[in-house]
Amino acid sequence: MRDLSTPNPRPAHLKPVPPPLSLGDSADARLFSMIQEGGTAWQRLAYDQYFPLVKGLIIRSLGPMADAEDLIADVFVGFFESASNIRSPTRVRSYVVSITMNVVRRELRRRRRRRFFSLVEEEKRAVDRVPSTDDPKAKVALLHLSRILSTLNPDDHLVFALHVLEDMNLEDVAQALDMSLSTVKRRLRRANERLLRRVSQNPLLSDYVRDKGERDEALSAEDGPLKEVL
């Protein structure tokens, strides 16, 4: 069992990120004020407010095989321990993102180490542990996608996950990962090249990605005129 008892008080190599991933709204301002007052009442509020963000970041970054519940708990334990370090309401969200990405990075590294020593059979049977989806091909495609993503360098992986899967702009990605913009661009280009090559070699995934993209594009096209009117 992983040792989860040690909280992650402050990301070791990630400085609290300067604003803004999103400008501090009233909820963040209220939360910040409660954190400053001390006590524990703010923790449930913070949890309710940031649970969807943390969950989305973790699952998009690590894929469906992530032991998401433990990792989400890691993030919030770390956040609750160190939130008093936050100096501005505009930094609450970015601080949560930083801690989350720190946890994700640690998990990616742990997986790489584990994969290095692990058994081939584990990969073979991984599909059984992907939580069920209604579409069996989606399940397999998700598994293939996760496998391909896991072959990336952890930092390239995080850049791709935040920018492409989480739809964050490059400046925000740079802030969240404590990288320069040019490094983010370089890593993104490298991740894209590698993924395109791997996906092109995988007929199942390329079929699925293409069909999926096409269906979704058709759907968004149906919404297009409405969006323009609005």
Binding site: I59, G63, A138, L142, L145, L195, Y208, V209, K212, G213
Partner: peptide, 9 residues
């Protein structure tokens, strides 16, 4: 690629 991956996730 990005659209397909994002949609899948």
């Amino acid at each position: 690629l990005g659209r397909g991956f994002r949609s899948l996730m």
